[in-house]
Every structure is written in structure tokens, then in C-alpha cells.
């Protein structure tokens, strides 16, 4: 997102969201269905570990400006698909475009630079660094991150100050401002989730990929996190998240994609999905271990 987009009024984004919803209203609830304005288009993605095929997705599109949930029972391949799309793992075959560019050959850090930033199922706070340093490290295109320039503080002090200001705004928004000089390792599990999300925003991403954002978060904080995720959409970002909790999916997702045994079995709005027999089958069917949920 560019600076000018940041300055847009929230109403503009709300309108954009309404438009996105309206666009999705005509989309058929079928696996791999085409969307009017996809930011991410993946085809034939396959990842096998020896004989085990962990992911085998024929086609998946994610509509720009929406919150899309990726659900499925344990072992469905959701996190593996995440890792593939974000460059943290290499597929056996397949290709995908992100924001009009092929992203298949990009390495993980290049994916992040291209505007698709992820978080992790087990939060990865940089524990022995302050909350502020956790934020500052995420800012993109820092001149001071080049070794030679690092030696000359005059070259990067101004950029650093600007980044610090932006970090303060984000920490304010995520209620972490009082913790900014604490070590990230001193934060509670929920606060680390908030920090990870705030940190991802330092990159000004176009798309945020959240891997189980609610895992291990106490119920009191869940509502706060939900609001923050909705806030991402209101800022014009596209969100794709992995989740188990159907209530949460119902509350915030505009669209839901369901995976089982590595395949995309269906897609649709939350209402369509909860009445889909294929989904119930996947979660409760004889072939799957429902006890895990």
C-alpha cells in the first residue's frame, strides 16, 4: 500500500469492501471458482513428501480486499499451502500469481517484499529484542540495513525516525505502546500475537497471511484480535487466514475455502459453507479424526 492509500478515508475502503462483497455475491460456491478481481491466483499446486501428497490444489483465487478463511481438519494441508504460497517451502509443481506477477520463483523474503506478509502459527516474536526493535526491523527498504551504510548513522537517521514514528502509531493502535521498551519475550502470548500482526503492518503489505491467529489466545483477547483483523480489511488489505474456530470464521470471513486431505473441497460464503455436506463430511466423516476438534 502506498502512502496515498494510507491517507484515504475509511469510508472509501468500506465502499471497496461492499463492492468486494457484492462481487462475491455472484460467485458460485464451487471449489476453484474464478473471482472478479483476484489478488492471488494459484493453479495446480502440489507438494508431496515422499509418497504423501500434503497439498494438491487444482485452482484457488483470493478476491482482493476481502477476508478469506482457509479451514479444514488437522492434516488438511492448510499450513503447507501457506508455506508454499509465501515461499517458505517449494512445491513439487504448480504456479501462482500474486498481484499480477508470478510469485512461484520468489524466495520467502522476496514474497514479503512483493507485499504478501505472513505470520506464524507459533508466534515468532524476536524475544531478546525490544518491542520497538521488533517493529523497526520490519520496515522495508531501510538504507541503514546495508552494511556500508550502517557505518554512517547520518545516512539513515532520518529514515529511522520516520519508521519509529510509524511504529509508534501502530503500537498505539495495537495497545502495545506502553510495552515498547520491554523485551518481546516478556509479553504474554496474546500480546505477542498482536505484536506479530503490528510488525507485519510495518511492511505496508497488500496481503496479510495469518496462520491460526487465534491459537493459544484467551477468549478476552479474541474479540480484540478479531477487530484488528477486520481493521486490516478496512485499511484496504486482503487477508487470508487459517482457522479452526467456525464461530470466528463466521464472524469475520467474507469467503471460506475448505481443505481436506490436501485438496480444496469447496468454497463459499460462511453461510453456504456451514450447510455444505462436504464440509461436515470432512470434519466429521468416517475417514477423519473428529476427536481432534
Amino acid at each position: 500500500m502506498s502512502d496515498s492509500e494510507f491517507e484515504r478515508e475509511p469510508e472509501v475502503f468500506r465502499e471497496m469492501h461492499q463492492a468486494a462483497l457484492a462481487a462475491l455475491a455472484d460467485v458460485q460456491p464451487e471449489p476453484g471458482v474464478a473471482k472478479p478481481d483476484p489478488i492471488l491466483t494459484a493453479s495446480g499446486i502440489r507438494r508431496s513428501f515422499g509418497g504423501l501428497v500434503a497439498v494438491d490444489v487444482d485452482h484457488l483465487e483470493v478476491q482482493r480486499g476481502t477476508i478469506t478463511a482457509l479451514i479444514g481438519p488437522n492434516g488438511a494441508g492448510k499450513t503447507t499451502l501457506f508455506n508454499l504460497l509465501t515461499g517458505f517451502d517449494r512445491p513439487s509443481s504448480g504456479k501462482w500469481d500474486f498481484d499480477g506477477r508470478s510469485a512461484k520463483r520468489l524466495r520467502s523474503y522476496q514474497v514479503a517484499r512483493a507485499g504478501m506478509v505472513r505470520t506464524f502459527q507459533l508466534t515468532k516474536a524476536l524475544t531478546r529484542m525490544t518491542v520497538m526493535d521488533n517493529m523497526l526491523i520490519a520496515a522495508s527498504a531501510q538504507l541503514g540495513e546495508r552494511m556500508w551504510a550502517g557505518l554512517i548513522p547520518g545516512l539513515w537517521k532520518a529514515q529511522e525516525a520516520a519508521n519509529r514514528e510509524r511504529a509508534m502509531e501502530l503500537l498505539e493502535r495495537f495497545k502495545l505502546i506502553d510495552k515498547r521498551e520491554d523485551y518481546a519475550g516478556e509479553l504474554s502470548g496474546g500480546q505477542r500475537k498482536l505484536l506479530e500482526m503490528a510488525r507485519a503492518l510495518m511492511l505496508e503489505p497488500k496481503m496479510v497471511m495469518l496462520d491460526e491467529p487465534m491459537a493459544g489466545v484467551n477468549p478476552a483477547l479474541k474479540q480484540t484480535l478479531l477487530e484488528h483483523i477486520k481493521g486490516l480489511r478496512e485499511d484496504g488489505m486482503t487477508v487470508l487466514f487459517v482457522e479452526h474456530d467456525m464461530d470466528m470464521v463466521h464472524e469475520i470471513a467474507d469467503w471460506v475455502a475448505v481443505m481436506a486431505a490436501g485438496q480444496l473441497i469447496t468454497e463459499g460464503t460462511p453461510d453456504q459453507i456451514s450447510s455444505d455436506p462436504r464440509v461436515i463430511d470432512a470434519y466429521l466423516g468416517a475417514h477423519h479424526d473428529a476427536a481432534a476438534h
Binding site: T86, F88, S108, Y109, Q110, A112, R113, V117, R118, T119, F120, K124, A125, L126, I137, A138, S140, E145, R199, A200, M202, L203
Partner: peptide, 8 residues
């Protein structure tokens, strides 16, 4: 891994 996810 975290640092990689931040584009470094």
C-alpha cells in the same frame, strides 16, 4: 524464519 518473513 521471522526475519525472512519480514523481507530480509
Amino acid at each position: 524464519e521471522a526475519v525472512r518473513s519480514l523481507g530480509k
